[in-house]
Amino acid sequence: MSLTASRALPEIEYEPYDDRTQLVQLIKGYPRSFTSNPSQPLIHRPVMLSERTGPSGLARKLTIGEDDLSRTVNGDQRAIGQRIWVAGRVMDQDGSPIPGAVIEIWQANAAGKYVHEMDHFEAPIDPNFTGIGRIVTDAKGCYKFQSIKPGAYPVMASDWWWRPPHIHFSILGPSWMSRFVTQIFFPGEPLNETDLLLNAVPDPEVRQRLIFEMTPTTVGRVNGLGFQRDFVLRGKRRTLALD
């Protein structure tokens, strides 16, 4: 490959998802999965430029900067709970950093309660905690925010079960194809073994990728526990040198 490229065309590749890395669609004990998921095969459509692209400059459209969930905006009081620092890196399938990716975070409070009208769990609201944040990755694809460790909560399905502590991540990357939504869990939680959603991922190695790594306390901050999780978004955005 020539280093003196006279013309450079961007090339993006998207590989199909490996089913072992995705949740099974029909989850026993979770009735919503039976009523909400497609019962017929989806149509595979061509990946055109409309799928390979995404809005540039999302940070100009969306309000960025809520990177401290451990208190409300302009709030003096910290939320109750174990204070945590979460950090990581967003990259593509080549391992190249994705700068400017918008990460949206939402989570329950330390008692397992969301600030949401659809949450009917009998647990207290924390007036100093909304559990909502929105940040953007820096030039190296890195992100970080602080929060408090979320609590567990029950799902009121016909066979109810308890969700382990987890944080929701929604990532708006460079393209329509790289849109990413997931939940990340905490290491060593007994409820991880019985959660219907985490265990709906067939591959045990992939399930481990959905769990934070704890930062060694010898290198972490003194005012909160550190957790790390990197994300790989679908696709490659590399420049090919052409003669």
């Binding site: 995705q22 949740l23 989850i27 909400s36 430029l49 799928e51 939504v181």
Partner: peptide, 26 residues
């Protein structure tokens, strides 16, 4: 859309749906 070369494509908008119980987005 004129971006893919050749004949212009029909006017269109991509739509994505995410919902509770919908395990994979549509």
């Amino acid at each position: 859309l004129r971006a893919d070369g050749g004949v212009p494509r029909c006017p269109q908008a991509n739509v994505m749906v995410l919902a509770i119980g919908l395990v994979r987005r549509l």
